[in-house]
Amino acid sequence: MDRPIRVLVAKPGLDGHDRGAKVIARALRDAGMEVIYTGLRQTPEQIVSAAIQEDVNVVAMSILSGAHNTLLPKVVELLNAEGADDVLVVGGGVIPDDDIPFLKEKGIAEVFTPGTPTQVTIDYIRDNVANK
């Protein structure tokens, strides 16, 4: 209990819905994690700057706008540029299966498509934070 996993939950992109991000934020909190919620319309630069200051273990992004192929790799790239390559980056939301191999190649550790039970995400984070 003394060292909860710290997760930055962000909502990149220009669309105005953050329901998905809020659902995952609550699920992670209920699983005992410390969630830093940054709100809507975050640029990759804002997300990375917050991740550095908050020294999080995980950046979890929910994205609906269709711009995942540019935004998610950009976050990984900026984190690496800061030397923060130990941060686990995961994505969720409306992401076509066909795009997943490309995202993984770009350093997104895992992608959770709609309908994935939150428990799967929680377990994935628990297992993989330890390995990083």
């Binding site: 909860p4 909190r29 209920d30 005992g32 410390e34 919620y37 709100g39």
Partner: peptide, 12 residues
Amino acid sequence: PFTGGSILGDRV
């Protein structure tokens, strides 16, 4: 909260 987890939202 009793789970020990929390949502910190001030940055919004």
